[in-house]
Design a protein around this nucleic acid. Structure first.
Lengths: 147, 147
DNA sequence: TGACATCACTTGCTTAGTCAAGTGAAAACG
DNA sequence: CGTTTTCACTTGACTAAGCAAGTGATGTCA
């Protein structure tokens, strides 16, 4: 028992790390009345608007149902608008949403980076980024049925 | 705008990757009627029992409230037992829980490893593990008030 | 034109987790 | 002995997400 392979060890560590840093991030974003998940969605909208819910869901790797609820909350808070447009709903930021994300972005990106910059060397960060790119791509492909 | 630093890019990638692989893991564990979160908790109990709820919560980086609920579910499913023991509750696996975790562990660890082994070289995996160890330790320290 | 299929989104039910207020037993103080 | 603190845990209200069934508008085909 306990065949803790290198991979499973790394996996646990990564889970714990993302968990911790996500909580810290939520904490940090409280100034702006945002959560990490909301920030992520808003930044995608800002960057890629106009787009539909399904496109957005795909970008942040969430199900359509999850996205539907998330957007309902953001709409209730007045950060985004959804317009029924032919068969789909087109999503865009409201002025308030725009302002919010612009305000939060610089410090939030800085905050995210700090998790890495405070412990790793420039070289290590590049390596890590490269490895994560590989891993992410692979898991994404694995997720798709059999495309 | 869009000062996407190296760190923030890496962060997003890691988030997406853990998200994806977590879902795949949940999918995989469905054979055993378990979720990733439950598997994680059970394995900790198996390894460190007997222990209290707060100790367990600390190990899997969850709040006490979260742990209370998690254990309530596991108890309802008959996988663990909680005994009021002086002031604290002592947690242990039932026979059913023990059997479940023993059955699931080898393939689940193998599955977790596969995310890495299928894309990275031995050398890269070692590097990644080392970097994650650093990062995890750091974020853990950051999380504690000011200890 | 009417029956059916498809598509984009919503919703009920569930797991998982957060925070903060609440509870109940034991300890410590006076 | 009674009051107050402390501790370990629970619980209510909430965000976030998954799956699967449901809805409603649009397209297709006989």
């Amino acid at each position: 028992m306990r065949k803790h392979t290198l991979g499973s060890l790394t996996w646990i560590r990564m889970m714990r790390f993302t968990n911790q840093s996500n909580q810290l991030s939520n904490d940090f974003l409280k100034h702006f009345d945002l959560t990490t998940a909301q920030f992520d969605v808003l930044i995608q909208i800002k960057t890629f608007a106009p787009l539909t819910q399904s496109q957005l869901a795909e970008k942040v790797t969430v199900t359509q149902g999850g996205m539907s609820r998330m957007l309902a909350r953001l709409e209730k808070d007045g950060l985004i608008e959804r317009k029924q447009n032919w068969k789909t709903k087109t999503i865009s930021l409201t002025a308030k949403g725009e302002q919010m994300i612009d305000e939060a972005t610089p410090s939030q990106l800085q905050f995210q980076s700090s998790f890495f910059e405070e412990v790793l060397t420039e070289e290590e960060m590049k390596t890590l980024n490269r490895l994560m790119a590989k891993l992410e791509k692979h898991s994404r492909e694995k997720k798709l049925p059999q495309a």
